[in-house]
Design a protein around this nucleic acid. Structure first.
Lengths: 227, 227
DNA sequence: TGATGGTATAATGTCGACATTCGACAGTCC
DNA sequence: GGACTGTCGAATGTCGACATTATACCATCA
């Protein structure tokens, strides 16, 4: 390279497949397409103004991501989550996030700690302001930060897949499953363990927290199912 | 149904995409296609006697499975694993298999226990017969059984993805990374904990075992890299 | 001699059309 | 009237062809 430093950022080269992928995923997560609903390749292609080929490839990818299921010659459908699925997702999240926080504890740099601390601080504010939507968003953000900070790309992939599946079920960033004070306290607790270098304790605390939320969501699901 | 019992077995309805998927995956795992090697859609399609469409979809699926990577307009390549990748895979395996064995401990039925016991018994035989290939295969089989017995489909998916990636690197069923006696002993230990209902201990033992093997493989990789 | 620019080639990205298959509906027979 | 069977429409599965783009090679020029 003749240029001494990075001057230009890479120009984003988006294929139609990637565009279709994002569009469909967002439509599902926004709730524009509901769980169980059928995804018509022809219609999606027509709406996006592209041919069926990139749409098909995007659907295949969404299938391996676990957002949709498809049956041969029958079509592709948005997943419907049972309580067994919720159990799977939350137990898996508990296991991998526990690993993530242990890794973070062992390698945490100042910047990461500062960002986690900032999230907790903002949680505190949101809790006092009774802004539960913001609090829920910060909650998710804290967990995602942990997974990213672990530098464990496969762990992050699994985490993203699980949370995306959950989002088809409910908008996690808008609902709280714990009293606001508890949310703040539990995350502050984990962060304290990270600061103290207590990897085991941090992992255990986070695991308990996630399993607890999972149980509450399962209970809520059963309550909804009665309707 | 007019027929009283099942007379005909289901006709296996395999789409060309699935056929291509299996064929390519097996070719990679068998070592016919080596890590880093380019996968030409046209050539694969020609060899399989199909068009490029199902081959492309199969490659996309292999990509999300983590077996290949593809760059826009450049092509698709078999993954090459660095020591960082091996570290990711083994730490993740340790975390999820630990979860799997805890679940199995809590719900193990007699049949599952019997099959696990049989695997350990056969390990014992293989160890005494100095049949390391068979021992390695039984080892993998034991771990896979645990993941299947957990009834946790997402956990199993992640496990399969990780082990498939590892197999592009080395044929796990043909190489041993521990003395034969240790292999038998460690698995027998885990099984004993399962029988005793000691979920925590079973999980911890399995986690140690996997991380240990992971470290050995990483060391081996560094040794190989010097060549 | 080295760097720059153009060109050829080959692979991927995308498209429209045809083949295959599934589900529903109507017709027929008992 | 009920159950089986044949037909029809629509969506998916597959194909071959064209468009786009990256790479290698070669000619040109300072």
């Amino acid at each position: 390279m003749a240029t001494e430093s990075q001057v230009f950022q890479q120009i984003p080269h988006k294929s139609l497949r990637e565009v279709a992928l994002s569009a469909i995923r967002q439509a599902i997560l926004c709730g524009d397409i509901k769980p169980g609903q059928r995804l018509l390749e022809t219609e999606i292609a027509a709406q996006l103004g592209v041919s069926r080929a990139p749409v098909r490839e995007a659907l295949r990818q969404l299938e391996t991501e676990g957002l949709v299921v498809s049956e041969p010659h029958r079509g592709t459908f948005v997943i419907e989550l049972s309580d067994a699925d919720l159990w799977e997702i939350y137990t898996l999240r508990a296991a991998i996030e526990s690993l993530a926080v242990q890794i973070v504890t062992e390698r945490a740099d100042e910047e990461t700690l500062a960002r986690l601390q900032q999230a907790v601080d903002e949680m505190e504010e949101a809790a006092q302001a009774r802004d539960s939507a913001r609090l829920a968003a910060l909650d998710m953000s804290f967990h995602e930060m942990l997974c990213r900070a672990s530098g464990h790309s496969r762990l992050l992939d699994v985490w993203l897949s699980m949370t995306v599946q959950i989002r088809t079920f409910i908008d996690l960033t808008n609902t709280l499953y714990l009293p606001a004070e508890d949310v703040v306290r539990l995350h502050a607790e984990v962060l304290a363990h990270i600061r103290n270098g207590e990897a085991q304790e941090a992992g255990a605390a986070l695991k308990r927290h996630i399993l607890d939320v999972g149980q509450r969501i399962c209970q809520l699901w059963r309550g909804d199912a009665d309707n």
